[in-house]
């Protein structure tokens, strides 16, 4: 589903590479943790998948497409195949829960009847049934993140990227979010999650890819957070 072929990314000429010769493949339906210290290249990895950045060297394949040859006007279509969730939720404060999720469908031109059936279903799936009319500031952090997950998943993308989705949440709430991501993964969606949260990684026992200063230092199936434990 996602394949990196000897990918390097250097932001400024002469600077230390953010990613250094990373070579890996994520299969369809996998759940992958991306771990490593701040600045180890996790975010760059996700940005390359979203084609917000282009690699300095090597090639990135996402959903069967070679991103180095993908023309700019086709990028929106690539992004419709990828849902993304962030640490800071990125909700629109002046829209209700329903509108926030519907927004993702409206801007890609989905018809109204489709939106009216899909959005409530998705809100039900993330456990926010009955809170459609609330605004983000009326919700707890965990609930806000559920809205963000609903927005990322409402178009049923084959890939879901999560950049520290539990970074702003307390441990109990985090577990809830992880259960949600796990449930989404079980529907066949490939999930790649960058995280610092060792407890979660240790609990989930999924594939772990560790980056250190841009280099992939570990790729372990059913792994834990720290390699020395």
């Amino acid at each position: 589903m996602i394949r990196f072929e000897n990918v390097s990314k250097v932001y400024a000429r002469g600077a230390r590479p953010a990613l250094d010769d990373v070579d890996l493949e994520v299969e369809r339906g996998e759940f992958v943790f991306l771990v490593g210290a701040s600045g180890s290249g996790k975010s760059t990895f996700l940005r390359l998948v979203l084609r917000e950045e282009r690699p300095t060297a090597g090639r990135v394949f996402v959903a069967g497409k070679d991103l180095s040859t993908l023309s700019t006007w086709k990028v929106p279509h690539l992004r419709r195949q990828i849902g993304a969730v962030f640490q800071d939720f990125r909700l629109l404060p002046n829209k209700t829960v329903f509108e926030n999720v519907a927004f993702a469908l409206q801007v890609i031109g989905k018809p109204k009847h489709h939106i009216l059936t899909t959005v409530p279903d998705t809100l039900e799936l993330v456990g926010l049934g009955g809170k459609e009319k609330r605004r983000p500031h009326e919700l707890s952090g965990g609930e806000q993140q559920r809205v963000a997950v609903a927005r990322a998943f409402v178009n049923r993308p084959p890939i879901l990227l999560a950049d520290e989705p539990t970074g702003n949440l307390d441990p109990t709430t985090s577990v809830g979010i992880m259960r949600l991501l796990d449930r989404i993964n079980r529907t066949g969606t490939t999930v790649v999650m960058a995280t610092h949260d060792d407890e979660i990684v240790d609990q989930m026992r999924k594939r772990v890819i560790e980056l250190d200063s841009g280099q992939m230092v570990r790729d372990q199936s059913r792994g834990v957070y720290g390699s020395d434990r």
């Binding site: 929106p76 419709r80 890609i108």
Partner: peptide, 8 residues
């Protein structure tokens, strides 16, 4: 967000 979810 529009860019992220793939609006043209």
């Amino acid at each position: 967000i529009m860019r992220l979810v793939g609006a043209s």
